[in-house]
Amino acid sequence: MRIHPLVVDGLITAAQTTVAVLLGREAVAQGWTALDAPAWVLVALANLPTFLRNRAPVTVCLLVHAVAVVYVSRGDWPVVNSFGPMLAFYTVASLRPARTTAACAALMTAVWIYAGLVTDGSSMASVVAQSVAYPVVLWWFGHTARRTADLTRQLRAEQAERARREVAEERVRIARELHDVVAHHMAVINVQAGLARFVFSSDARTAREALDTIAGSSGEALAELRRMLGLLRADGVQGAADGAPAPGLDQLADMVERVRAGGVPVDLRITGEPRPLPPGVQLCLYRVVQEALTNVLKHAPGAHATVQLAYRAGEMTLSVHDDGKGVNPARKQERGGHGLIGMRERAKLYGGTIVVGPRSEGGFGVHLTLPTSVPAARRGDAVAE
């Protein structure tokens, strides 16, 4: 439980005042005259205002030092009222800039020397040494406290900024996943719905097949959305909710079949020796293929697409290209599309390289290379068009 700062200040002031009162009662035993009523009033005025030292440090410092001057001028024991001025000066050193602290240090030194001059039997060498040593030590402690407070505030600000950045990155990730899920399946559903409407009266079998494809695509879209919502509710733990794993390369053929059913001829070629891959790498490859084929469905109707996936030593390469007119990436981004941005972000996340853009021989192509032999994330990235 955190104690309120005013409570802390009150406790410190009470403890300090109690010590001053106990010392005042020992004045006679130490060879000084007993404190009278005015002296006790000055003791109170030199200690109780320190309760407000954090709100008005300079004002409190000036006040208690002025009271201390009056107190020692009366010939009373100086030690009784020494703690209030020292605490007030420490507060100035911990809260105010060096110039203000230096002025208050000079004031404390002057008051200390003055007390030595007006007190009989004082050793001025000792008084001068103390008048320099105490302000220096208190200044150092105050400066350390101030620096610690500044570092604490800076750390909290950095933590808050990091939290905001992580929230923004998570929102981008969620938006990218939603785009990948919705855009692909809706593109297939849109094409199949148009086909079913066109042949509804003339070709019942084709219409039924189109409706079956719509049902399958919509069901898969809902399943992926449920999976994503389950991950969010479980703080990002995969397999929450219905336990469905993230899409991987084992589902690549099914996704290609859906695109074929949408009216785009697709060739799937896999070379190299298949091997287990990290789930994140598989999801990245799956999503890039999904986005690339979705773009063919939406922007290159009638084109033929080819997906080439190669297992290589220490890396995976993926190429998706078509022979249609393609899509201008800059124009697509101007319309607010997130697909190409998502592909770049995925490549960057796993330390891969991706090249997207129109091909010299015609059509549009995507070429992705992902490292798999070493931790890929944040290793470096390159994105080109």
Rank of each mutant, 00 (worst) to 15 (best):
L252V: 07
E315D: 12
P135W: 08
P358Y: 10
E166D: 14
V21T: 06
S360I: 10
A183D: 05
A115S: 11
H304L: 02
E177I: 11
A103L: 10
V79L: 13
C61D: 13
A261S: 13
V136D: 06
K325V: 12
V281Q: 03
A20P: 09
F200L: 03
T206D: 07
E361G: 02
T206F: 04
V137A: 13
R233W: 13
D322R: 00
E161C: 10
A34S: 14
S360L: 10
A56H: 14
G194F: 00
R205E: 13
D267G: 08
G216S: 09
A110K: 05
I174F: 13
I270Y: 02
V67C: 01
F364W: 11
H304V: 05
L232R: 07
V259Y: 01
P278Y: 07
Q16D: 09
G357F: 04
S122Y: 00
L42T: 10
T18H: 11
Y90D: 05
R171M: 15
G31Q: 15
H143M: 04
T109R: 03
P78A: 00
L349K: 07
R197C: 07
A88D: 03
E220P: 04
R99L: 08
E166F: 06
G336M: 15
P278D: 04
R146C: 08
N54Q: 09
P276V: 12
